[in-house]
């Protein structure tokens, strides 16, 4: 993709881009990976604690404790988004807060807050899946394709 893009650029543009690139600060990949690993891991650890709490306190099984655990994490992420804390935390944590279910909750909550001034129907309703929508569309579609392949393979293999 980037190679294809480069081809359409004139030599002057290409020369400028390498000129500019050598003067731009880079994202620190190693540092970002490390914080993402630690923060993401901590969120998952928190999830594990919540899950164990539901099993120990409310008599859920290992299989059924998943749903209330996710609900609690989503609630926390949406609350922190509403309080205006999540985006500052995420700037530091990077993928650590984006990859777990908390990141997904943040995309929906932030879009809903953002478009509240345009009303509940066209604003909140119409825009809250602005960022999360593609994840759902391609998530469902790839799940469908995988299920289709699995069905075909099992029917062939018996």
């Amino acid at each position: 993709m980037s190679n294809q893009k480069k081809k359409t650029l004139t030599p002057v543009q290409q020369e400028y881009q390498s000129f500019a690139q050598s003067r731009e600060p880079k994202r620190s990949v190693v540092h970002n990976c490390f914080t993402a690993f630690v923060v993401g891991g901590t969120i998952c650890l928190l999830g594990q604690f919540i899950q164990n709490f539901f099993i120990w306190q409310f008599g859920f099984t290992k299989e059924t404790a998943g749903n209330p655990t996710v609900a609690v994490l989503i609630f926390l992420a949406a609350l922190l988004t509403g309080l205006g804390v999540y985006d500052h935390f995420a700037q530091w944590a990077g993928a650590g807060t984006a990859v777990p279910v908390t990141g997904f909750a943040n995309t929906i909550a932030s879009a809903a807050i953002e478009h509240r001034t345009e009303g509940f129907v066209l604003g909140v309703g119409g825009n809250m899946f602005k960022l999360a929508g593609p994840v759902i569309v391609f998530g469902v579609f790839s799940a469908f394709v995988v299920a289709l392949i699995k069905t075909i393979l099992t029917s062939l293999g018996g």
Binding site: N32, D87, G103, S110, L131
Partner: peptide, 13 residues
């Protein structure tokens, strides 16, 4: 760009 409360990491540029 994105909603103001969206937690996307911005690059140093």
């Amino acid at each position: 760009r994105y909603p103001t409360e969206y937690g996307g990491q911005k690059p140093p540029t």
